[in-house]
């Protein structure tokens, strides 16, 4: 029979282009037009883990993403890595979601898809980095969850032991499936698509759902379903001295060293 495996992925702006990203001062949303997009790096680790578990126990790997139409690219890339089907949750009604509304959207879609034995998320995204969506989704699904997962050891098909990161150490946690795991970069090295797997993408299932398809109550998704919202963007006042050294390179350096001495820093 095998395992039903779900992997949550998000399309994010490429970190090499972060310095080009600006905030829309009004809405607090980021302006990412023209910035190349990738699968959130840790979500690749999540997918790799899902594919390995399928390899061991057999089953099916579904990838799911809430995002704009272009997020389909990320799902196609996941299919090329070996996932079996892709689900894109795409609707203007989903826009402006905070992490709870995002988790809600994923929850309603999962309810529609049926039962999963194991769900993998990245521990955090590079563009919002909250590490909240995974645990919030697990809570809505009422399944156990672990963040910061560095290593997973399956006992049998239903029980596993995971090692999760702590400050200066780690924790071993035993859990029973169904469960949700949020993985770190230590867990594996994501595979690259092969020519063969890229050719297979066209044959694979890609489902695009709107809010009404997943029967999500309008007040639980998007901006309306978000308890938190942005209230403006402001300059940060650092209170630093901001002294810029002048002169030739040697002079600047000498002046800087002299100032560091005066300030007692060296």
């Amino acid at each position: 029979m095998g395992l039903e495996i779900l992997v949550c992925i998000k399309q994010v702006p490429h970190p090499d282009h972060f310095s080009e990203i600006r905030l829309d001062v009004g809405s607090g949303r980021i302006i990412r037009a023209g910035i190349p997009a990738i699968i959130n790096p840790l979500d690749r680790n999540a997918l790799e883990e899902g594919l390995r578990v399928k390899g061991r126990f057999s089953g099916r790997v579904t990838v799911i993403s809430m995002g704009p139409p272009q997020a389909q690219k990320a799902l196609e890339e996941a299919l090329a890595m070996g996932a079996d089907r892709g689900i894109l949750l795409c609707d203007v009604a989903f826009a402006g979601a905070d992490t709870l509304a995002t988790a809600n959207t994923l929850f309603y879609a999962i309810r529609k898809l049926g039962k999963f034995d194991v769900i993998y998320c990245g521990n955090e995204t590079v563009d919002s980095g909250t590490a909240q969506v995974g645990p919030q989704l697990a809570e809505l699904l009422d399944i156990p969850q672990v963040s910061g997962v560095q290593e997973v050891t399956f006992g049998d098909e239903k029980t596993l032991e995971v090692r999760r990161a702590l400050e200066h150490g780690y924790m071993k946690v035993r859990l029973k499936l169904p469960a949700l795991l949020c993985v770190t970069r230590d867990i594996n090295r994501p595979r690259l698509p092969t020519v063969q797997s890229i050719m297979e993408v066209a044959q694979k299932e890609m489902i695009i759902w709107k809010a009404k398809d997943i029967e999500a109550p309008p007040e639980s998704v998007g901006l309306k379903g978000s308890p938190t919202c942005a209230a403006g963007v402001y300059e940060h006042e650092s209170g630093r001295r901001r002294e810029i050294m002048q002169g030739s390179t040697e002079e600047k350096v000498q002046k800087a060293v002299a100032r560091l001495k005066e300030l007692g820093a060296i």
């Binding site: 992490t99 919002s128 590490a131 909240q132 995974g134 809570e139 672990v146 963040s147 978000s226």
Partner: peptide, 23 residues
Amino acid sequence: ATEIGKELAPRVAAKLRTGLTAH
């Protein structure tokens, strides 16, 4: 927002269906 707090806070906030701001 420790390794544990980052897991516990979203679980608790989602149980309460309330807002959560990170870091």
